[in-house]
Design a protein around this nucleic acid. Sequence first.
DNA 1: ATGGTAGGCTAACGGCGTTAGCTTGTCAAG
DNA 2: CTTGACAAGCTAACGCCGTTAGCCTACCAT
Lengths: 178, 178
Amino acid sequence: MTTELSPRAREIVAVARQLLEEKGPAGLSMRRLADRVGIRASSIYKHLPDKQALEHAIVSTVFEELADEFEAALEHADPVGTMVAIYRRYAKDHPHLYRLMTEQPLQRDLLVPGVEERASLPARLLVGDDPDAGRALWAFAHGMTILELNDRFPPSADIDAAWRAGFDAFRRYAENAQ
Amino acid sequence: MTTELSPRAREIVAVARQLLEEKGPAGLSMRRLADRVGIRASSIYKHLPDKQALEHAIVSTVFEELADEFEAALEHADPVGTMVAIYRRYAKDHPHLYRLMTEQPLQRDLLVPGVEERASLPARLLVGDDPDAGRALWAFAHGMTILELNDRFPPSADIDAAWRAGFDAFRRYAENAQ
DNA sequence: ATGGTAGGCTAACGGCGTTAGCTTGTCAAG
DNA sequence: CTTGACAAGCTAACGCCGTTAGCCTACCAT
């Protein structure tokens, strides 16, 4: 269902998002959420069909927020670099949101329509004439982000340097495209 | 605890792995696992301290398997390309295992010692003299893999081409390293 | 012969998502 | 002014989940 959320539903989603950011995925239960909202768990179902829909509603708010920031970055001198920096920083500031957004197959009919496309502006912009390289760059950025979030690099790793190396590789590739 | 698993524990882990591959993460519950093994859920705790340890034991078997394949690839003419192909294929053949292995912070003291290092052979080999580029390449490979697994590319995307683009970018980068 | 231990068991706890079915207040139509 | 629909709350319950406590029994070493 792609139908608009009621104002009350939006309130609940906002509380859910806050709860997730604070306590992580294990902390976001229907009962705890209801507690914070001041109702009983079963009443949530008057506003949202199930937990999956709730999570997708949260994801939609994240997409919107990211899209706003990306679009603002268009003004910058180096929009590509700026957007990558925004991406990286957003994940660091909101790790649980970032995981929620990326670590599951999206059920697109549960998202606010159009919001995924808006948030994918950088992927489309960065290497506009080469969508394959654009996707590869996105994969790199996501890989770096999630591997860092999940503590998969050895402690000795210079993560900034890895970002630079990858970004350089793609920049050069885009420059000498043939 | 890094202590060795008992033979019985290894049996249970093997069944658990099979269950996960078949039914996905939601299908891997202590009760279902016990059912398959022919005991009660609580008895599992005689062999493994908790579910986290069970999952890490599964991950260890995956690391071992991957490491074996990687090491065999050393014989090949193009070990780097071969290893990337192995990586990609493994994820496609065992999506639930791949997710389990990558989508959470690892608790390294729960792994069989040394197994993570063995499985990271490609990362170390590929760009041996430039660990930063090695990590970036790994991030790219993981990003491509997980984004594809999670259905995040539009249906129109040419995923093979994206792999090629990224791989080329890194290869050129490694060639013109300064 | 005996006592410890490995490896089963039952029962239970507190949590989870979700559903069925009841109640109440608001508000529009007759 | 009454009435009836409906939105939005409630309680109770179902069947899952991971995990723990405490019991039993068979084996094996002293």
